[in-house]
């Protein structure tokens, strides 16, 4: 058991002036940051607000910044953090704080509502079912692992530093778009929206979203860049446009 120092962000309401407050608690073997925060809450900060649910890295509720890195508190082991300096815990910086470590992430749900929904082709069989080859569905399976923790949104500098929430939907919703757009049954076209309304051109491929994803989704290489390439084909590639003119304008 070792006494460990923490610097935790405290803020009283969305408009309140926030700041770090120092706490000390005993850390034992096997503890994660969320355990330590709960212990501090029980011992010395009963009014500390923290959002959590599953404590298993599957609900995406306890997203925060630990030592400056966007992480799930429940999946960050204390034994992996240096203890010679205080452990800093603060809320996600790309979203407004409701209180202490709790952010208002509702903007993400509003964004999601505006994305073209899935619309499958007519059923392949008379009983109303479809046939999909395993290799075709495997490509989009990865995107379905997303737990909507919004850590990728938090670390993306377009939202975090430039606050372009009105013009850019962020990595989470490029993954969501990719899951729909690359689905073998889907018939909708989302490329114009990706270019114009959702701002995929703002992404400058820092790969920070991929680095923080707790589900290890290869966001940049498998979702964003393939979508960027499709946007290039649709809007910026004169040869492709010419090819479409002669081939009747169909997309694969």
């Amino acid at each position: 058991m070792a006494a460990t120092e923490f610097r935790i962000w405290r803020q009283d309401g969305a408009d309140g002036e926030g700041g770090y407050r120092d706490y000390t608690t005993d850390v034992t073997e096997g503890m994660v940051v969320l355990d330590a925060v709960h212990q501090i809450q029980a011992e010395s900060a009963n009014d500390l607000a923290v959002r959590w649910n599953c404590k298993a890295g599957k609900c995406g509720s306890c997203s925060a910044e630990v030592n400056g890195n966007p992480r799930l508190m429940c999946m960050t082991r204390m034994s992996d953090l240096p203890t010679d300096r205080p452990v800093t815990v603060e809320p996600m910086r790309a979203f407004p704080v409701i209180r202490d470590l709790v952010c208002d992430v509702s903007w993400n749900y509003e964004v999601k509502k505006k994305i073209e929904p899935f619309e499958p082709r007519p059923p392949d069989a008379e009983d109303g079912t479809w046939r999909i080859a395993q290799e075709d569905v495997e490509r989009v399976q990865e995107f379905r692992k997303c737990i909507e923790c919004f850590l990728c949104q938090d670390v993306c500098h377009v939202l975090r530093d430039h606050h372009l929430h009105d013009e850019f939907v962020g990595p989470r919703f490029f993954v969501y778009n990719a899951a729909l757009e690359m689905h073998p049954l889907d018939t909708r076209d989302r490329l114009a929206a990706l270019k114009q309304d959702e701002g995929i051109g703002y992404c400058n491929i820092t790969k920070c979203c991929t680095k923080v994803c707790p589900e290890h989704i290869t966001i940049t290489d498998n979702a964003i860049i393939p979508l960027k390439e499709r946007v290039v084909s649709e809007f910026y590639d004169p040869l492709k446009k010419l090819f479409r003119v002669f081939s009747g304008g169909s997309r694969a």
């Binding site: 890195n69 377009v158 975090r160 430039h162 701002g199 051109g201 992404c203 820092t206």
Partner: peptide
């Protein structure tokens, strides 16, 4: 940005848009 989750020197940003 200079690195992930590190503050930037400029306000304006147009990206590859």
């Amino acid at each position: 940005p200079p690195a992930c989750a590190v503050g930037e020197p400029r306000n304006a940003y147009r990206g590859e848009n």
